[in-house]
Amino acid sequence: MKGLALIPRHDFAFDPTYGYDLEGLLAVPAPEAPADFEEFWREAHARATAVSVAPKLGPVEWEADGLRFHGVSYTSVEGFRVGGWLSVPIDGEITRARVVAHGYGGRDRPEVRVDIPGTATIWPCARGLPARSLHPDLPSDAQKHVLHGIGARESYIHGGCVADMWCAATALTELVPETRDVRLDYIGTSFGGGIGPFVLAFDDRFASGALVVPSFGNHPLRLTLQCTGSGAAVRDHYARHPEVLDVLAYFDSATAATFVRRPVHVGAALFDPAVPPPGQFAVYNALGGPKELFVLETGHFAHPEEAAQEAALTQAQYGFMTA
């Protein structure tokens, strides 16, 4: 395979490269948007930015690497109270701001990868997900969470999750007023990378983004590919309810990427059993603004060079977002 030195040894009953080489991955398109796709999402954004987020800053929980971490909570759409963390530099003025999303396992604390000096960051846990946005009416397991409300575009939980990130940006500006006048970026991995194109496409507050192994790209293709994790749950549901594709058309990350005009860095994998690479590359290929690609050997799969690869990805993201 061009671009993949050696296919890793694995025990999956399917090929996590799905038979694609790099050239093939770079040709995967985005599905055509429904006629009212943009209208649907701009209305969703208007509802989110109209929310009185009422952020609450908790006490300092720890300090590390020149940053002070507080617990934080704020209100998102449907009155949902989102929890997470806020980090601010211990010393020095704030010159940048970020919203950093997480993967489908949620997070039990912030994972600082790209450390840009002078940055204030909000680290939300999307609704229903660990550790700080659990709710008795929402499933916390990824394979159940990904199906919650999937019967209609108005109720599908991913719409609320995108709104949680928009409301996080509002909460950040209220908690740290200095961030109103500095550059705001978005970073998301896997689940967070998949909702990232929606966050970036319809909110002009964000200057740039970084997406790593983004999920939810090209659903019509993705639903034909065997995989693990949340994707498997959606694929199984589609087999019983093919009409769900009409709903998923509004939540396709590659489709949303066609509306993104700001600079975006993407780390996409050649081998990934959880998020099929064709979907990841569909997101990158569809981006409508300046973009940069970092090709990962694997995603959602441990290998001997993983640490070195992660370090190289972090360096590439840092260079892109500080250029």
Rank of each mutant, 00 (worst) to 15 (best):
D204E: 15
D204L: 13
L172M: 13
D203P: 07
F206N: 05
F206R: 01
G160Q: 10
P177Q: 05
V182S: 10
G193P: 00
E178I: 09
F206Y: 11
L200T: 08
G193F: 08
E178V: 08
A201G: 13
G149P: 05
A169R: 04
G196C: 06
M165R: 03
C167Q: 01
F206M: 07
C161R: 07
D204G: 08
Y186E: 03
V176F: 10
A169V: 05
D164C: 07
F198C: 09
F206V: 07
V182P: 13
A163S: 15
L175E: 03
H148F: 15
A201Y: 00
D204K: 13
D204C: 06
S155P: 10
A201E: 01
V182M: 11
A171Y: 00
V162F: 06
T173D: 12
V199P: 02
G149Y: 12
P177Y: 14
E178A: 14
W166A: 05
C167F: 04
F202W: 06
H158P: 00
R205H: 11
C161G: 04
F202Q: 06
A168D: 04
V182W: 01
T189L: 13
L184C: 10
S155L: 12
T189C: 12
G160P: 01
E178T: 09
D181E: 15
T173F: 00
E174L: 13
R183E: 15
Y156D: 02
F206Q: 01
G188N: 09
E178Y: 10
W166D: 00
G160S: 15
I187N: 10
A169Y: 01
E174A: 12
G188W: 03
R153W: 00
F198G: 04
T170V: 15
E154Y: 14
C167W: 00
G194E: 03
S190N: 09
Y156M: 08
F198N: 01
I195P: 02
L172N: 00
G194W: 02
